[in-house]
């Protein structure tokens, strides 16, 4: 049981952090489809630096630096060049996947994977007794717990969080309150870049300690789904991410437990199906409640 919970947490951590990143962005009014790209770039930068320097601190710093630059690029393209947010997000994801795959070959001469000599520290390694499974958890998982509390606090208990939320809920109101909307969006994207860097590092340096092409397997998009599934609220997003972690762990478990009875693919489908159902139910509820849809003068896609 303890082992299973740990597996859940391990599976959930990258999605969780990326989903928090997506939540900050969405709260500020930016639909973030670039989470997948930031996960991959973070994972690659962390692993490559770990291989090159052997320092986990430098590895994390490199991942953060790369993601901050990419997030700023995202902001510049969508703000100053008025590019379509969703397409830039998808473009970011594609570029990151391609560029890391390319760099994997060019820098490391291997198409398969690079192995890191070091992994993320595990603060509770070596515990014995019932708490022993905790030893398998990396520091990033514990950071995710703290950061999700921080996300809740910053959004729900600070005026800065209110201003950020106003940028997404009603940019005109935000502007009227004197909030520099674009700057808050940049801040949200940079926070997101940082969180995705941690998520990426967890992906490549926690259990497997290697980076391979396609390492993220769409977890970034799953994180985006968790943002909407969780109602763009800190607690909801965390619960949704943990649910995705649970489903992933069940998928792994089911391969072991009942290989023939239920194909693991169907277990793995569960989070996607649940997401579709949940998002539809929410939409229906909003419609029933007669919530005014914002009038779109002319679609700008």
């Amino acid at each position: 049981m303890g082992d299973f919970l740990v597996t859940c947490l391990q599976a959930a951590t990258p999605i969780w952090l990326a989903a928090l990143a997506g939540m900050y962005a969405q709260r500020a009014g930016v639909v973030h489809l670039g989470l997948e790209g930031l996960l991959v770039s973070g994972a690659f930068a962390a692993t490559a630096t770990a291989v090159g320097t052997g320092s986990i601190v430098l590895a994390l710093a490199a991942a953060v630096a790369v993601n901050l630059v990419l997030s700023a690029l995202f902001w510049v393209l969508t703000t100053y060049f008025k590019a379509n947010v969703m397409i830039v997000g998808l473009g970011l994801s594609l570029t990151a996947a391609g560029a890391t795959g390319y760099a994997l070959v060019v820098v490391f001469g291997s198409e398969a994977a690079i192995r890191s000599p070091i992994g993320l520290p595990r603060p509770f390694d070596g515990l014995s007794g019932p708490l022993a499974p905790l030893g398998d958890l990396s520091i990033v998982t514990f950071a995710a717990v703290v950061l999700s509390w921080f996300a809740w606090w910053s959004i729900r208990r600070t005026r800065a969080g209110l201003r950020l939320s106003a940028c997404g809920s009603d940019p005109f109101a935000a502007k009227s309150a004197g909030v520099p909307v674009e700057r808050y969006r940049l801040a949200a994207l940079l926070i997101g870049g940082f969180l995705c860097a941690l998520a990426g590092a967890e992906l490549s340096l926690a259990q497997v300690q290697s980076f391979s092409d396609g390492i993220s397997q769409g977890r970034g998009y799953l994180a985006f789904a968790a943002v909407l599934l969780g109602g763009v609220a800190p607690v909801g997003v965390s619960v949704a991410s943990l649910f995705f972690g649970l489903a992933a762990a069940l998928g792994i478990q089911s391969q072991v437990d009942f290989n023939d009875a239920l194909p693991p693919q169907f277990v793995l489908m569960a989070p996607y199906v649940v997401t579709i159902v949940a998002i539809s139910v929410t939409a229906l509820a909003n419609r029933r409640r007669g919530r005014q849809q914002t009038v779109i003068m002319e679609r700008t896609l």
């Binding site: 590019a83 473009g91 990151a96 391609g98 390319y102 060019v106």
Partner: peptide, 19 residues
């Protein structure tokens, strides 16, 4: 490497809606 193509496609997507 093949991934170069994905990178190129991604870059096109990044700029294509710039207006």
């Amino acid at each position: 490497p093949l991934a170069g193509l994905d990178m190129l496609n991604g870059m096109v997507a990044l700029w294509i809606t710039v207006s």
